[in-house]
Simulated scan of single mutants.
Amino acid sequence: MRKPQTNASIQDGEDGMTESASVEGLSIEIDNGVAILTLDMPSNRNAFGSDVALEYATFFQEANTRQDVRSILIRSAGDRDFCLGGAVSRTPVPPPRNTIDYRFVSTPHIEMFKAMWELERPVVSAVQGTVAGVGWLLALLADMVVAAKGSRWSHVFVRRGMIPHAGDSFYLPRIIPFHRLNEIALLGDTVTADTLDKWGLINRLVDQEEVGDTAMALARQFAEQPTRAVGLAKRHYRRSLEVDWNTMLREEMAGQALYTTSADRNEILAAGREGRKPVLTGD
């Protein structure tokens, strides 16, 4: 598989940096350590195709080693829709030659969510309006979910005569309690964020006009944390869902040892000795 390419350009901004994504409908802004990714495709109700998925995948892969990115905020423009799932790419893709080849149609979205799952930078999603299809993954693979009261979530795959895809069957059972998952995925019932909050899937349930500010406050709080420590902790928690006890303990021990060499760890220790607030750089 080819590695996704990016043609992003970066320009100086008043409060940080602005990075223009190479595909229409997705903007990327870097503001004091917070990368703000905004879906803005109202004609598609923010459903996105393989071109946007590849852009996301590339950014997530690169974010792990970018000094200017210490947290990520995913949001949508407007208040009608967060994301209604996948869509036909704006860049035409040749159709599969036969049914067997159709297995690979969702590869760009698979790569995107794999990169999001493995991302060590903390992610906050700001959800308002309607969520459907793979929009569930875009929202719930975030580390913190901020959602508007009354926002509507519909899984839709089975109702549309489709099987959940793009990694849905791997990720959602690790996030949603099993019988609740059956309710939303097999019955296809629409639920509100209020219900998901009762199920423990929402971190902050707020009025719609508060979603943006609440999510940004969390993203900025993450950006002020010791970035490497947050990243390793996040990685370990997610890895523990996939590996055995011995493997997890060895990875945890290796991560603990590696982090002792970080600048932020040594700064925290020095600040403690000197009775001052640490100045963290994310390194």
Rank of each mutant, 00 (worst) to 15 (best):
S9D: 04
I10C: 00
G13D: 14
D15Q: 14
T18C: 04
A21S: 15
A21E: 14
V23D: 00
G33C: 02
V34E: 10
T38K: 12
S50G: 13
A53H: 08
L54T: 04
F60M: 10
F60W: 08
A63R: 05
A63Y: 06
R66H: 00
Q67N: 07
D68H: 08
D68F: 06
R70V: 06
L73M: 04
I74H: 09
S76K: 12
L84I: 14
G86N: 15
S89P: 01
R90T: 14
R90F: 01
S106G: 03
K114C: 05
K114Q: 12
M116R: 05
P122T: 04
S125K: 08
V131T: 13
L140S: 06
A142T: 03
A148C: 10
A148K: 09
H155N: 07
V158L: 09
R160A: 09
F170V: 14
E183T: 07
A185K: 03
A185N: 09
V191A: 02
D194R: 07
L196C: 01
W199H: 05
L201V: 02
Q208T: 15
M216P: 09
Q221R: 11
Q221D: 13
F222W: 10
A223E: 03
A223G: 05
V230L: 10
S240P: 05
V243F: 12
N246H: 11
A257E: 14
A257V: 13
L258V: 10
L269D: 07
K277I: 12
